[in-house]
Design a protein around this nucleic acid. Structure first.
Lengths: 151, 151
DNA sequence: GTATGTGCAAATGATTTGCGTGCTT
DNA sequence: AAGCACGCAAATCATTTGCACATAC
């Protein structure tokens, strides 16, 4: 999987960014991630591919990609920024399991409409938002006594 | 207005907290605030009442009040925590004017229901959330050419 | 009286930045 | 060749904490 350029790298090229080996590595790390790593996590994954990369470059590159709308910066309230590949298509949000830290993604059209309507009613056009839900798993008390383990 | 104990001080007393002069001052500052000051802001207002207060105490006291659910910590994404008096009654959220930094509050029952429903559908009970909207003011281009100033 | 709070300054953790060198276009 | 990008270490910013002293109950 190292022969193909990642979708993020493609986006960078399209935007005319100078592509360095470090940026390529970070782009690949993000493209291959299905979770929401923080900077340290991106740095570690990148380091395993290219051990001479510096964390300052990871910070700079993530900021660059974020500003270019290639990735999205998330904030789950723990003081560290997290990142995921930006999805232009549909707005999705996150529900964080407060016990395990698991992150589920969801999207809901009614929710999108209500947010826009609220902004509009206040005389504003919605240009950004921040929305995370925090929850605890509901016990399914009637069946399957063999679950409820953390991972 | 310095003769009456503030509502926050009352809440502290009710919870059996040891009430110091500093805590009383910070409680009053928060009770008197209609905006959403950050720690530095609370510190400055408190300092004007009691110049010998230290910012470490402000941090400690705000954390204490937050944990006791007497105040609520907000995060508008600018790297500083902000605070407001906790309202037990109805959940309200904030819309931030990205141009001026103004903060409008809103509440919407449909929104509350949808959030709960989303969590439930994912198998979770909603125990917390973070929700802010960011917007730009819609120009009312047909009338009143005398507005649209920032404050 | 004793546990707890406070002030100060130093420590921390995440993130940014200045500077000299290296690499992409 | 020229201008960005990188690595390193120092700087910054918000916040926390250790310690000696002060204070509420």
């Amino acid at each position: 999987m190292n022969t193909q350029i990642s979708s993020i790298e493609a986006a960078c090229i399209e935007k005319g960014m100078k592509m360095t080996e470090q940026r390529r590595v970070i782009a690949r790390v993000l493209s291959d991630s299905t979770d929401h790593p923080d900077v340290e996590g991106v740095y570690q994954r990148a380091s395993s591919i290219d051990p001479k990369i510096s964390i300052a470059t990871v910070y700079r590159t993530l900021r660059l990609f974020d500003i270019a709308n290639i990735i999205e910066r998330l904030d789950f309230g723990d003081g560290r920024a997290r990142y995921e590949v930006a999805t232009e298509d549909s707005h999705h949000h996150h529900l964080i399991d407060v016990k395990t830290g698991d992150v589920l993604e969801f999207e809901n059209e009614d929710l999108e409409n209500i947010k826009k309507q609220i902004a509009k009613d206040l005389g504003y056009k919605l240009v950004g938002e921040r929305l995370e839900l925090y929850g605890v798993r509901i016990e399914s008390k009637t069946s399957d006594p063999n679950r409820n383990q953390e991972d």
